[in-house]
Design a protein around this nucleic acid. Structure first.
Length: 557
RNA sequence: UGCCCGAUGGUGUAAUGGUAGCACAACAGACUCUGGAUCUGUUUGUUUGGGUUCAAGUCCCGAUCGGGCAACCA
């Protein structure tokens, strides 16, 4: 089998890398994945992880994992751990190269001093409100801060006192001295150090001043010898700034920032802020709620790392900011699990069938194929008895011609069981079917037709005498519309939440299913792929999450 | 009304001046002890106007549309 994942990948970034290697610009590439530990990783990060780690792997380079923790107000160790877990789960390894931006604070402080000494930065006393005026607007140049020409010695002194904690939050800051007339606002004397009296999860109270992203990022990349610094499109306008710091500080090996489009997926949202909001608002049951597009959510839902890597491979890398159909992710999962997941029979909406001419009390153990796509998966025995459960939707009292299931007078195959012919049904006072009556053909044991007779319909079933009962959670898309964030002014995107994204039911299952350990996946035949929930399952009592239903091309007409 | 970036079927993505291809989705048929899978087929595309060229999705200029940028967030 040729998996797309192993097919050679080509995109504009890999083309650049190939070229850099060919021309000798680099002999070895170094990339990095730099998450801020202020939230859980989602599938959009998965795309970046696959690109950063994946390209390093393909070109025999290395990829560093770096916690971009320059803003202590939102970061924590909980997130650091979750990020490591998720990247490992996805199948990537950073080896020795695990770093924290915080570990570079001293070097960054020195770099800022260098800039000041060289007349390229200064301590500014303008308030944020005042700065808005000085900065100007895109169509008009700004004017220099009155502190712009402050002597380097004086700035150096102020900077040291900032570090020592002599000033209040936000009263002073350090600005790079670049170009107040630039049409790119980011070049109009951006802040590189600010005062924040917030304990850092890693450095504690050691610092009360912290570097900003724009200053910190190029330095970290340079410190680590990163060759290709891959980030998303919104940083495009920051690139001149990135290059400026690298040049002004005289780094010989210059990392190159290259931007690509972030991932958007239909029927969900991929922004840390919005996901946090769903978690904190109790709209989902946590970061790992199986409906969440977080990696931990997808993991708990039952998605495999392979399917996610395959998805990230198929979507490609470009600079076009579009929406990827979530159906592609589901396809990747089905494509894999079709080949690997053992089959089992489970009835989600049971109704009893009584086989009138089958001996009461008799039980036969029928041989069932574990996976038709994989002969090596072998077979198992499933019990058959006089009363079985079938899906309520597999019976119709007044059925159209194309309904290849149970209906009065029609014969269907009970998969691996017998051929049965429906003789009628029993209904309660409200007209609801409570029991289906059938007769079976003893010559069709195992579902075989010795006479070569063709039967159009085959349905799944579970013997009533041996039916296990399990909790099954049926998940649907988190949002009911394709583009949840596309809401009119003043309308909250959360109104697009799908109220039916979770339905919990009790399903009846064949006995073998009860033995499933947490994390075990099945294909419930004719229904969908499921996994025994990692958290709520107990030995002998698994709880299942439906990962994704099987395709259903039967149109009820 | 400033700057930066982008635009190829419904969606995502190839074609690096030389036959617009692939995948998902949709639809149809074949096959099937899963209305699954598999196989076959079908529908649908280079935003627009100029220019360069024997030849333009590709290069140049203009327009249109979309995204990003005015945190001491990343």
């Amino acid at each position: 089998m040729t998996t797309p994942e192993t097919a050679p990948i080509s995109d504009f970034i890999r083309d650049i890398i190939t070229d850099d290697l060919k021309t000798g610009k680099h002999t070895r590439i170094v990339t990095r994945f730099p998450p801020e530990p202020n939230g859980y990783l989602h599938i959009g990060h998965g795309k970046a992880v696959c690109l950063d780690f994946g390209s390093a792997l393909e070109f025999n380079g290395e990829c560093h994992l770096r916690m971009d923790d320059t803003n202590p107000s939102k970061e924590s160790m909980e997130y650091v751990e979750s990020i490591k877990t998720d990247i490992r789960w996805l199948g990537f390894d950073w080896g020795e190269h695990f770093y924290y931006s915080a570990d570079y604070f001293e070097r960054m402080y020195e770099a800022a001093r260098t800039l000041i000494r060289n007349g390229k930065a200064y301590v500014c006393e303008l308030s944020q409100e005042q700065w808005k005026e000085y900065r100007g607007i895109p169509t008009q140049p700004g004017k220099g801060s009155p502190f712009r020409s402050r002597p380097a010695e004086e700035s150096l002194d102020f900077f040291a006192r900032m570090r020592a904690g002599e000033f209040g939050d936000g009263t002073l800051c350090v600005r790079a001295k670049i170009d107040m007339a630039s049409p790119n606002l980011h070049l109009r004397d951006p802040v590189i150090y600010r005062i924040m009296r917030v304990p850092h999860y890693r450095t504690g109270d050691a610092w009360c001043i912290y570097p900003t992203y724009d200053f910190a990022h190029p330095l970290e990349d340079a410190f680590e010898g990163i060759t290709h610094s891959l980030c998303t499109l919104e940083f495009e306008v920051h690139r001149p700034l990135y290059d400026w710091f690298i040049a002004e500080l005289g780094f010989e090996k210059k990392p190159r920032q290259i931007e690509f489009a972030r991932l958007n997926v239909t029927y969900t949202v991929l922004s840390k802020r919005k996901l946090l909001e769903l978690v904190q608002g109790g709209l989902v049951k946590g970061w790992d709620d199986p409906r969440m597009p977080t990696l931990c959510g997808l993991r708990r839902r039952g998605f495999t790392p392979e399917s996610i890597r395959n998805f990230c491979h198929r979507i490609g890398i470009t600079k076009f900011d579009g929406y990827t159909d979530i159906a592609l992710l589901e396809f990747c999962l089905r494509d894999e699990l079709n080949k690997t997941a053992p089959r089992a029979m489970a009835v989600l909406d049971p109704v009893k069938v009584v086989i009138e001419n089958y001996p009461a009390g008799q039980v036969e153990w029928m041989e069932a194929v574990n996976n038709p796509e994989d002969p090596a998966a072998g077979t198992r025995k499933v019990p058959f008895s006089r009363e079985v459960f079938v899906e309520r939707e597999d019976f119709m009292e007044d059925a159209p011609k194309k309904f290849f299931r149970l209906a009065p007078g029609r014969e269907v195959r009970l998969r691996y069981g017998y051929l049965v012919t429906c003789t009628g049904c029993v209904k309660d006072a409200s007209g609801k079917v409570t029991e289906i009556r059938c007769t079976y053909d003893p010559a069709t044991q195992g579902g075989n037709t010795p006479d070569g007779r063709k039967v159009k319909g085959t349905i799944h079933w579970v013997a009533a005498s041996h039916a296990g009962r399990v909790e099954l959670r049926l998940y649907d898309r988190l949002f009911k519309v394709e583009h949840p964030e596309a809401v009119p002014e003043g309308v909250d995107y959360k109104t697009n939440l799908n109220p039916e994204s979770l339905k919990t039911i009790e399903a009846v299952v064949e006995p073998s299913v009860l033995q499933a350990a947490a994390g075990t996946r099945f294909q419930f035949e004719r229904k969908g792929y499921v996994i025994a929930d990692a958290i709520d399952s107990a030995p002998g009592k698994p709880v299942f999450n439906q990962i994704v239903p099987l395709r259903d091309s039967w149109t009820k007409t």
